[in-house]
C-alpha cells in the first residue's frame, strides 16, 4: 500500500471543468464583510439590476431612473446587486487513520478537498485549507482565483499523514473569525479517542461562524470488517495491539456498534444545523460530490 498520491489522482481536469458551471453558495443569504462574488442581500454597485426604490432626498441623484420619471412622473432610483466575498474553509483530517490501512480514504478525502477548493476558487471565493490531526493547522493562506488550484493540489499531495485524531482539540483550535464567514467543510472519518468524542466535538463545531458541512469518509471494511478467528489488531494511530477471537457474532456486534456511532453523529449534527454526509471510499467520487453539494444546499448555478 503506497502512501504517495499523484496530482492526477486528485486533479481530474475533465470533472473540474464540469464544475465551472457550478458555484458554491450559502444556504442563507447573509451580509458579508468584503466584496466578492457571493450575492448578498445588500445593494451595491454591480451591473446586475436588482430593484427600484422611491427616491429620497440626499440620495445620489445619478441613480434616478429618468425614463421611469418620464412615464410615471415619480422619482425612483435603480438598485443594483451587491456581491460580497465568500470564504470557503476546508479542513482535512490528516491523522494516520485516513491513510492507513486504507489509502483510498486519503484519496477520496483529498478529492473532496481539491474539488471544493476548485469550486471556491473558480467562484472567486477565498479558499482556506487546513489539516487536522492532533491539532488544526492552516496549511495555506486564504487563496483567491482559479490559478491557485495548482498550489492547493501540490500542497495536499505533499501532506504527511500521521498522529492521533484529537477532535475536541482540533475543533477548539479551529475558530474562523467573523470576517471570514463562509462555508466550512470538515473531511474526516471522525474516529476519536472514545466513541462519544465525535458527538462532543460537534458541540464545539456548532459555535463556528459559518455553515458547517461534515463529510465522513470511511472504508467499507471499517463498516463490515472481514475478520475470522484469532487476530492481532493494531491501531495505526496509537500503535496499540490487541488480540481478539473474532467470530461472525463479533462481526455482527461490531457492525451494529459502528452503525450506532454513525447514527449518533448524524443526529448530533442535525440538532446543530450541521450537514453530515457519509461517503465510502469505494463510491464514485463525482456522483457523491455533487450529491454532497445538492443535499447540503451549497450548490448554485453560476
Amino acid at each position: 500500500m503506497t502512501a504517495s498520491l499523484t496530482r492526477e489522482d486528485l486533479f481530474d481536469a475533465h470533472f473540474l471543468d464540469r464544475l465551472r458551471t457550478l458555484a458554491l453558495r450559502l444556504r442563507k443569504r447573509r451580509q458579508l464583510m468584503r466584496r466578492g462574488m457571493q450575492s448578498s442581500p445588500a445593494t451595491g454597485y454591480t451591473r446586475e439590476f436588482k430593484d427600484y426604490r422611491h427616491y429620497t432626498p440626499k440620495e445620489d441623484f445619478r441613480a434616478i431612473d429618468w425614463r421611469l420619471y418620464a412615464r410615471l412622473d415619480k422619482l425612483f432610483v435603480r438598485l443594483y446587486e451587491e456581491v460580497q466575498e465568500l470564504h470557503i474553509h476546508i479542513v482535512v483530517d490528516t491523522s494516520a487513520s485516513m491513510e492507513k490501512p486504507f489509502i483510498e480514504k486519503r484519496r477520496q478525502s483529498l478529492r473532496f478537498a481539491v474539488a471544493l477548493a476548485y469550486l471556491g476558487l473558480s467562484g472567486q471565493h477565498r479558499v482556506s485549507l487546513y489539516s487536522m490531526s492532533d491539532t488544526t493547522r492552516q496549511e495555506l493562506p486564504p487563496l483567491r482565483g482559479q490559478g491557485n488550484i495548482e498550489k492547493i493540489t501540490t500542497a495536499v499531495t505533499k501532506w504527511a499523514y500521521g498522529g492521533v485524531t484529537d477532535l475536541e482539540k482540533c475543533f477548539t483550535d479551529f475558530r474562523p473569525t467573523r470576517q471570514r464567514y463562509g462555508s466550512i467543510f470538515v473531511i474526516s472519518d471522525f474516529f476519536g479517542r472514545e466513541v462519544g468524542t465525535a458527538v462532543e466535538a460537534v458541540k464545539r463545531a456548532a459555535g463556528w461562524s459559518g455553515e458547517t458541512h461534515f463529510v465522513q469518509v470511511i472504508h467499507p471494511w471499517e463498516q463490515r470488517p472481514e475478520l475470522d478467528g484469532e487476530v492481532e489488531l493494531a491501531d495505526v494511530e496509537t500503535g496499540e495491539r490487541r488480540r481478539f477471537w473474532i467470530t461472525k457474532r463479533e462481526v455482527k456486534l461490531y457492525a451494529e456498534m459502528f452503525d450506532a456511532f454513525a447514527e449518533n453523529l448524524s443526529t448530533a449534527c442535525a440538532g446543530r444545523q450541521i450537514d453530515f454526509y457519509t461517503c465510502r471510499s469505494d463510491e464514485p467520487f463525482e456522483d457523491r460530490f455533487l450529491d454532497l453539494l445538492m443535499r447540503g444546499g451549497s450548490l448554485a448555478s453560476a
Binding site: 484469532e230 492481532e232 496499540e240 490487541r242 456498534m257 456511532f261
Partner: peptide, 19 residues
C-alpha cells in the same frame, strides 16, 4: 495470530473483554 492494521480499535475494544 494474523496481524491486522485497523483505523481504530474504538469498536473492537468492547467486543470481547476476555481476550
Amino acid at each position: 495470530a494474523k496481524r491486522v492494521q485497523v483505523s481504530t480499535l474504538l469498536f473492537f475494544r468492547t467486543l470481547a473483554k476476555e481476550h
